[in-house]
C-alpha cells in the first residue's frame, strides 16, 4: 500500500485572519508581520487520514510539497507525524502557480514515484482557496476522484469514503488507485511527540527542481491575475450593551433588539 499526500505551505490562516492587507499595485496580499508558514489545514487533515490508514493496514506514506522558499522544519512535521518520506519540489519558478500548473507539476513528481494506491489532498488551500488541484491531479492521471471527504477507509481493496454534501453526507466506494480530497471533519493532524519532531529534522528528504523534473511549470499557466483588491467590508458601529451583571446585559440586549425592530 502506497499513499501520496500533497501538502501546500501557506501563511498561517489563523494568525493572518485579521490584519491582512492588499497591495493592489503589486497585486500582492500582505499578511501581518510574523505570520508563520504552516501546512495548509485541509492538507493536514489529508495527512491525518493517510496516517490512520497506515496505522490500520500498514502503508508507505510519501508527502510531496511544491513551492518556492519552502520552510523545511514546517514540512518535516509531516515526517514527525508519521509520514515515511518527504519530497520537496522547490524552484523559483514554482511560485504563484495556478491550479492547472500546480496539478501538472505534482503529477510530474507523482509519475516519478511511479507506484501509488491512494493520493490524498486537502479540499482547498488556505491562501488561494482555489479548490482544484486534487481534482486536477485525478483527471490528469485518469483515476477516480472523491472530494470533501469526512472519512476515508479501506475495504476489500477499495477506498470507502464519506463525503460532506449540503444536506448530509454520501458514502462512495472507488477502486484504487484513487484520489480523495480531505475536509476538516476527518479530524486534526495528530500532535507529534517531541522526540519524533527532533528525529524528523534529521531524516533525509528529497528536493527536486524544475530542471530535474523537466517541467516548465510557469509556462503551463491557464489563468492570469488581472486585479487584486480589498474586499468590501461590512461597515458597522458595534454598540456594546452593558449591565451590572452578564444576566442584566443579556436582558438589556433583548430590549435593544426589540427597540431596534430586529425581530
Amino acid at each position: 500500500m502506497r499513499i501520496i499526500v500533497c501538502i501546500k505551505q501557506v501563511p498561517d490562516p489563523q494568525a493572518s485572519s485579521s490584519g491582512t492587507k492588499v497591495d493592489p499595485e503589486a497585486m500582492r496580499v500582505i499578511v501581518p508581520q510574523g505570520t508563520p508558514p504552516v501546512m495548509s489545514p485541509y492538507d493536514e487533515n489529508a495527512l491525518e487520514a493517510a496516517i490512520r490508514i497506515k496505522d490500520a493496514h500498514g502503508a508507505r506514506v510519501t508527502v510531496i510539497s511544491a513551492g518556492r522558499n519552502l520552510a523545511k522544519p514546517v514540512l518535516r512535521k509531516s515526517l514527525a507525524s508519521g509520514a515515511d518520506e518527504l519530497v520537496l519540489l522547490e524552484d523559483a519558478a514554482f511560485e504563484k502557480l495556478d491550479s492547472y500548473a500546480t496539478a501538472h507539476l505534482l503529477v510530474a513528481a507523482i509519475r516519478e514515484i511511479g507506484e501509488y494506491d491512494l493520493i490524498l489532498c486537502g479540499r482547498q488551500a488556505a491562501d488561494t482557496d482555489a479548490g482544484q488541484v486534487g481534482s486536477g491531479i485525478a483527471e490528469i492521471l485518469k483515476i477516480p476522484c472523491i472530494t470533501a471527504a469526512s472519512k476515508v477507509e479501506l475495504s476489500d481493496g477499495k477506498v470507502l469514503v464519506e463525503r460532506v454534501v449540503s444536506d448530509g453526507f454520501e458514502v462512495i466506494e472507488a477502486p484504487m488507485p484513487a484520489l480523495v480530497t480531505a475536509s476538516s471533519e476527518i479530524g486534526d493532524l495528530r500532535y507529534p511527540k517531541l522526540k519524533d519532531l527532533q528525529a524528523a529534522q534529521k531524516m533525509p528528504i528529497t528536493v527536486r527542481g524544475a530542471q530535474a523534473l523537466g517541467i516548465d511549470a510557469a509556462g503551463l499557466k491557464r489563468v492570469n491575475l488581472v486585479r487584486l483588491a480589498e474586499p468590501p467590508r461590512r461597515k458597522t458601529e458595534c454598540r456594546i450593551i452593558g449591565g451590572e451583571t452578564p444576566e442584566e446585559a443579556g436582558a438589556n440586549l433583548a430590549l435593544k433588539v426589540k427597540e431596534a425592530k430586529l425581530l
Partner: peptide, 19 residues
C-alpha cells in the same frame, strides 16, 4: 451591530427569557 461582552452561559438564558 450590537454586542454583549460576557460569558454566553450567563448572557444567553437572560437574553432568551427577556425575549
Amino acid at each position: 451591530d450590537f454586542g454583549v461582552v460576557g460569558d454566553w452561559k450567563k448572557v444567553l438564558p437572560a437574553f432568551r427569557d427577556k425575549l
